[in-house]
């Protein structure tokens, strides 16, 4: 039986790996392939992986260079790629005796490699660097599936991964809605590419690429592994395996079931009536709520016996 602190460490290790990868994706689409024509709105982008106020405490302007720095190596930003990996590694260290040796070596050397890149990545090498982040993240995800126990430990890892991924897909969508060119087709193509959904989307929708279709795809497409509903369902399945019934169904599971139901039944029109921004914001808040409930479940003293 896994100790509560270890369960928490597994969730957060997994979350931070996923967060680092998503940061790389967001940068990849916004910085490596800058939108043609009018400039990007950088501030909303900052909001995806950090805090705008905090950003301006350290940088005077938001532009490609400062945002890149803030997202990748900044040690002031707890959600920068480097800091995410550091925290992933710290969490991994705390549960190290449960992890396969190869897995720990991989995450450890990943972190060391990124640390060695600090101050060495420029605009030209940015693509290679972001690609490295994605690839090594895939390596870790693959190891979790291929060499780790799929019992309790695996369930906590998947739980962390999908909660984080749902959050990031929602934030990404939210940010792109604010961009000035959100009515143009090539813009949405890039959004799809940032979540590696381009080919999968094409195979379903063919040439039809509009804001509405892409939005609905990333929220409700049940088979695409980064859509909101897919992530919520996976997180739910993981939670059912990870969190035992103590006094009835654990609260985090109830919350996730409600969330899943809402995503399943809502139509694009309803979302648009409420405002996509508001809808995504509500989702993000509720998804965070699940995380808080899991924490309470793990460490609640009165329920312990």
């Amino acid at each position: 039986m896994i100790n509560s602190r270890h369960a928490d460490n597994l969730i957060w290790m997994s979350r931070f790996i996923e967060r680092a990868e998503n940061n790389a994706r967001i940068l990849d689409v916004n910085i490596i392939r800058p939108f043609a024509g009018e400039g990007v709105l950088w501030e909303p982008l900052v909001a995806v992986a950090g805090n705008v106020e905090d950003f301006y405490r350290h940088y005077s302007v938001a532009d490609a260079a400062t945002v890149f720095q803030y997202f990748t190596f900044s040690q002031m930003n707890l959600n920068s790629i480097y800091m995410c990996l550091r925290q992933a590694r710290e969490n991994a260290s705390a549960v190290r005796e449960r992890l396969p040796r190869e897995f720990y070596e991989e995450i450890n050397s990943f972190c060391l490699v990124v640390r060695a890149c600090i101050n060495k990545v420029n605009e030209k090498s940015a693509y290679a660097f972001l690609n490295l982040i994605k690839r090594r993240s895939f390596m870790l995800q693959g190891m979790i599936e291929a060499i780790m126990s799929h019992g309790e430990d695996g369930a906590f890892l998947r739980l962390g991964r999908y909660l984080e991924r749902a959050d990031k897909t929602a934030r990404l969508l939210d940010v792109v809605y604010l961009q000035p060119r959100s009515d143009q087709e090539d813009f949405w193509l890039q959004v799809l590419e940032s979540v590696s959904a381009y080919e999968a989307y094409r195979s379903i929708w063919g040439g039809q690429i509009t804001q509405r279709e892409v939005t609905s795809y990333l929220i409700q497409q049940a088979e695409f592994p980064r859509s909101l509903i897919f992530c919520v369902r996976q997180a739910l399945a993981a939670a059912r395996c990870a969190l035992p019934n103590r006094k009835g169904v654990p609260e985090p599971i109830c919350l996730m079931e409600r969330l899943e139901m809402r995503l399943r039944h809502i139509t694009v029109e309803e979302m648009e009536n409420r405002g996509i921004h508001q809808f995504l914001l509500d989702f993000i808040v509720e998804n965070n709520g699940v995380g808080n409930e899991i924490n309470r479940f793990l460490f609640a003293e009165e329920e312990a016996l």
């Binding site: 039986m1 100790n3 509560s4 602190r5 190290r96 329920e303 312990a304 016996l305």
Partner: peptide, 25 residues
């Protein structure tokens, strides 16, 4: 075997327990 810190353990009625996700062990 689990690697635990002091906070992960507690004593009740002269017995030592570990906090786990399934409750006390």
């Amino acid at each position: 075997i689990p690697l635990v810190e002091g906070n992960d353990l507690l004593t009740l009625d002269n017995q030592v327990f570990m906090r786990t996700v399934h409750g006390l062990q």
